[in-house]
Design a protein around this nucleic acid. Structure first.
Lengths: 277, 277
DNA sequence: CGCCATACGTAACAGTTATTACAGAGACAG
DNA sequence: CTGTCTCTGTAATAACTGTTACGTATGGCG
């Protein structure tokens, strides 16, 4: 379905009459641009008539010339999106330039991932991908949105995902139900919130598997956590940046999704069924 | 004459009226493919009418839309023919080591900011830093946490910041109080949520100043928005990445904070007083 | 040599497109 | 508030585009 048009041509070019073969040659010769022009232009370039072009695209499986063009455009779009293609770019603005804020964020992301061994991420993913464990997520004042972000994705691909929202008292009472089969993902950066620390401590005592995402100075929660991920947060701003932790969150989400591919596919299918009714 | 159209846009975008500026944004956001489609398609993507598109290309120095398209095609042809890009890729020499996910995220951030002129960010900051305007923030399924993140910061440095949480019906009823003195910050990436579009449309009709953070394919809300920021989202994952938009959010927060430095310092002082009692 | 099937182009048609003129909406100075 | 100027969308139009039907040419086979 999503196959390349160039390949499709190569497959069928032998079975084509001479005129259409000329069309095929002209198309691959300067692929794919003439395919985006009008039928008349295409025909002139190929040295055939317009109807021959239409018969050609019809043989490729497209009912309308516009379908054919749409397909070519999609291919082009995918190709242009791959980041490495940027010859027309002003090369100067490349290395830095954007803004100190952006440069610092990128540097933070790089540094954060350089200091984290791959096996540590793998271990966390193992834990998060275990469907028999219940996942709870909570964050501080500014990091709670990141917890929500993770929860929004995880809850789609696996069961038993819960974001602890609202007031501290709300989730403190949940402690009584928590135990060794629970995972607690905590996000906490400066200034560390006492309420979170207390909560984490009690959860740790009950055997909850704590995964902490924090900054490079390490929240005191690190003492109770089984896994600690430290992200760089320094940027030229009055605030600390959570960008590195955000990318970390997305990375974890992506990996867990990959791990649960089969299970989650079925799960998503069921969800869409439920939505249709 | 043989200059790049993207550069030509960057030169003249400041002198353009708002509608044509939206056209410029839409074109730069996914350059250059929408420029190769029909005027009507281009107009729909940009959220303006067809004549505005024609005035836009006219301002770029093209007498006919077809001239404009021809120029774009030549650029594309030159770009596609130069094979140096992929082979001499400098990204490998640079330590790309981390992971494809991280590399893609960094590249997305770079690309996003490269496509956004500095004055556009400045304009948005101007609006957000106006204390007489009320700011409301809302997001879609996965982007709502970003709205929360922005709200959490903005609400500290200035008054009248409100995150629209929960069900659609909750905020739809707020429309009646909304008008020209309101700013609505909307985050919306694929797959765009109908409820958000409807909400934005009605808000736009009431004169609300809409700032849209979306992906490179532009949410349909772009039609109603006064400011559109398009972030790259493609990563090697089953999900789209909001990392670029996250950095954009942090950048906006940082800039607004800087702008309001004096006012917010007093405000923060008062807040701490209130907390101590 | 004659018949048939396939391939191709010409020409007409219908739908779509770019383009233009015009009027309403909005911003701004007086 | 009033007039003016800029900007923008609506609607009509003229050019063009894709598409189809049809006739001609060509090559193979009896």
């Amino acid at each position: 379905m999503a196959e390349n048009i160039a390949e499709r041509i190569a497959d069928r070019v032998e079975a084509m009459p001479p005129g259409e073969r000329k069309a095929a040659q002209a198309l691959v010769a300067n692929y794919p641009l003439i395919g985006l022009k009008t039928v008349a232009d295409f025909a002139a370039k190929a040295g055939v008539s317009a109807p021959t072009i239409l018969r050609f695209v019809s043989r490729l499986g497209f009912q309308h010339y516009s379908d054919f063009q749409a397909h070519l455009q999609e291919e082009l779009a995918a190709q242009l999106q791959s980041p490495l293609i940027r010859s027309t770019a002003p090369a100067s603005s490349r290395e830095s330039g954007a803004s100190p804020m952006v440069d610092a964020s990128i540097e933070n992301i790089r540094e954060t991932f350089r200091h984290i061994p791959a096996h540590q991420i793998a271990e966390i993913v193992d834990v998060l991908a275990n469907p028999r464990m219940r996942i709870m997520l909570v964050g501080g004042r500014f990091t709670d949105p990141l917890a929500r972000y993770m929860a929004a994705h995880l809850t789609i691909i696996r069961p038993n995902v819960l974001h602890l929202a609202g007031q501290e008292s709300n989730w403190r009472d949940r402690l009584i139900d928590m135990g060794k089969r629970d995972i607690l993902v905590i996000l906490d950066i400066r200034r560390y919130q006492e309420s979170l620390v207390r909560f984490a401590e009690k959860a740790g005592q009950r055997g909850v598997h704590i995964i902490l995402l924090t900054d490079q100075w390490l929240s005191p929660i690190a003492r109770f956590a089984r896994h600690v991920v430290a992200g760089r947060t320094a940027v030229p701003s009055a605030w600390d940046s959570s960008a590195a932790l955000f990318v970390m969150a997305e990375t974890l989400i992506a990996e867990v999704t990959r791990r649960l591919e089969v299970e989650s596919a079925r799960r998503i299918g069921e969800m869409e069924n439920l939505r249709d009714n």
